[in-house]
């Protein structure tokens, strides 16, 4: 097979793969995030402690997590037909992918949210915040770096599943690898597909890592990602591009050896400030 022959096939297959991965990821985000948060909230000692709900939700997630994807896909054939009207093509593959991705992501969300210091939730409660406020203002924003990392892991897992879906008529790169690379012994094509998948996964991972690190390093040291973030420094960047690297940000404290009396010594005494 020549490159000219491979190219259109690859293009279509890549588009299909990205479509089903994208759909499944979107659904995972929309359903998995609330499910994961709910798992934490309804757990013992949680803000919405509710044993039955927690048990049922946990069981559903566990079942979803433990089923091998190929079995899940086959078992869901009728459901898929009912949802998208067909059991072939990337649209059909999206359904089991989404169903598989939701519990996967939900568990990761649960772990991430559980890591958030309970003291922060207490602080919000002490301010008169509701449970919803605690979720919106504390749990999700504070867990964001881990959530992004979890989403990255989910996307990569879904890419893997999508290839499996492709092998049984789901379209995408998996389908291509199966029909051409495996059935027709097009070893070169197979190699190209493998390389593309590796690159795809590497790209997702790199983007995810970058985003997670940018979020996690807020206020800790500096890095190139800082420049991407929306803050007054960006305005200054536009005006004086050369000064960006060297000029310290407005709010950055002097990292010098200030000693233990940094507090109080550096700031005006409150009595004097009024």
């Amino acid at each position: 097979m020549t490159w000219a022959e491979m190219q259109p096939l690859l293009l279509t297959a890549t588009r299909e793969t990205l479509s089903m991965v994208g759909t499944a990821t979107l659904v995972a985000l929309l359903a998995g995030l609330p499910a994961g948060v709910l798992l934490v909230l309804t757990d013992r000692g949680g803000l919405l402690q509710n044993r039955p709900v927690n048990r049922v939700l946990g069981a559903v997630v566990n079942v979803g997590r433990s089923l091998p994807f190929i079995v899940l896909m086959l078992a869901l054939t009728q459901f898929t037909k009912w949802v998208v009207g067909t059991s072939l093509g990337w649209q059909a593959a999206s359904v089991p992918l989404a169903v598989g991705a939701v519990p996967f992501f939900a568990r990761l969300v649960e772990t991430a949210v559980r890591e958030v210091d309970g003291g922060l939730v207490e602080a919000v409660q002490a301010m008169g915040g509701s449970t919803w406020t605690a979720v919106r203002k504390v749990l999700v924003p504070e867990a964001l770096p881990s959530l992004v990392a979890g989403l990255t892991t989910t996307v990569i897992a879904v890419v893997g599943y999508s290839a499996m879906a492709g092998a049984v008529g789901g379209g995408g790169l998996g389908n291509l690898a199966y029909t051409y690379g495996y059935m027709r012994f097009e070893t070169d094509f197979m190699t190209v597909i493998v390389v593309e998948l590796v690159l795809l996964v590497a790209l997702v991972q790199a983007l995810g890592d970058l985003a997670a690190r940018a979020l996690a390093h807020r206020g800790r040291g500096s890095g190139p990602v800082r420049l991407l973030r929306r803050r007054p420094a960006a305005v200054r960047t536009a005006r004086a591009p050369h000064a960006v690297r060297t000029a310290p940000r407005g709010g950055t404290p002097d990292p010098g050896p200030a000693g233990p009396s940094e507090d109080g010594g550096a700031v005006p005494e409150p009595a004097a400030s009024h």
């Binding site: 206020g219 800790r220 803050r231 709010g251 404290p253 200030a258 940094e262 109080g264 700031v267 400030s273």
Partner: peptide, 18 residues
């Protein structure tokens, strides 16, 4: 009031305990 007007844009990780 608490004498930290100049630290408004800093993140907690950049501050001392006090």
């Amino acid at each position: 009031l608490v004498g930290l007007a100049d630290k408004a844009g800093a993140y907690p990780a950049q501050l001392s305990g006090g």
